[in-house]
């Protein structure tokens, strides 16, 4: 009976994951391997294709041609400097990240017992967990050559991201290094859903008021994850331990990411951070 409960929990978290995260690993891997039947993603590999990629997305979202010049979203790129294009791309990434925070919050709320926790502790768990979750969610979108962005409509090459000016060029490379290794574990979407819930329910986040109920919830999800991995990957030895070890790498990645954003705030005069991301990163590490 206990195993049946754990399987029910795994199914519930998988269903929430599919409901709140629009691009699943299954879909992303299908796009990356060209098995979708739809057209291949638009490839961004240099500044010219970046501006064309913006145009590609804008045309899909705003098909009325007479609206385009007023939007100021990448037309007449001739006079625009690379710095401006990079900064605009960074702002778009921020908006997508803020939307990602909303998706992760909805997923967290669907974890049984989460909304019953002290509200301050819910805020703390999300503040410290959300960037870790977003980095894990990036892994299925990546391969060694680049990453899907814009809900899988665009593929941006790793070399192009490395060619951006400092410190933009340093932002994604550590995530690629992590993702290539993480993807070797070959987790599927159900494994991922349980792992994300384990990350969110970390009882050692600074400032938690009532740790015990969080640890109790995490323990149940950990049991569900262990059972899921044993059933789904019977030949993968020590997979449960290997997955949990990734949590240490994740904390370092988030610390480095936040330091880079703080550096950006000092060096880029025109940079405005999204208020939600500001809230999360303030006094984080």
């Amino acid at each position: 009976p206990e195993s049946a409960d754990l399987r029910t929990l795994a199914k519930h978290l998988y269903e929430s994951y599919v409901k709140y995260f629009p691009l699943t690993k299954a879909k992303a891997r299908a796009i990356l391997s060209g098995k979708t039947g739809d057209s291949a993603p638009f490839v961004i590999h240099d500044m010219k294709s970046l501006t064309e990629g913006e145009q590609f997305i804008n045309c899909k979202q705003m098909p009325l041609p007479d609206q385009r010049p007023e939007m100021g979203l990448g037309f007449g790129m001739g006079q625009e400097s690379a710095d401006e294009v990079e900064l605009r791309f960074f702002h778009r990434c921020q908006f997508r990240s803020a939307e990602g925070v909303r998706e992760v919050t909805e997923f967290a709320k669907s974890i049984p017992g989460f909304v019953g926790l002290d509200l301050n502790d819910q805020v703390t768990l999300l503040k410290y967990g959300v960037i870790e979750v977003l980095i894990i969610m990036m892994a299925p979108l990546m391969n060694k050559d680049g990453t899907l962005i814009s809900y899988g409509q665009i593929f941006m090459t790793r070399e192009f991201l490395k060619s951006l000016r400092k410190p933009f060029c340093e932002m994604m490379e550590p995530k690629f290094e992590f993702s290539v290794k993480f993807n070797m574990l070959e987790l599927d979407d159900c494994d991922m859903a349980l792992f994300l819930a384990v990350i969110i329910l970390s009882g050692d986040r600074p400032g938690l008021l009532n740790v015990k109920p969080i640890e109790d919830l995490q323990e149940t999800v950990l049991h569900a994850l262990e059972l899921q991995l044993k059933m789904n990957h019977p030949d993968s030895l020590q997979l449960f331990a290997k997955v949990l070890q990734k949590m240490t790498d994740l904390r370092q990645l988030v610390t480095d990411h936040v330091h880079l954003i703080q550096l950006l705030k000092k060096t880029e005069i025109d940079l405005c951070l999204h208020p939600l991301l500001q809230e999360i990163m303030k006094d984080l590490y």
Binding site: R102, T105, E106, L119, V123, L126, G207, E279, I280
Partner: peptide, 21 residues
């Protein structure tokens, strides 16, 4: 803590549409 995290708090209390963000 929730006072310093008004948007997160709002997201936890109600779902917010992408446009609001």
């Amino acid at each position: 803590l929730k006072e310093k995290h008004k948007i997160l708090h709002r997201l936890l209390q109600n779902s917010t549409s992408p446009v609001d963000l």
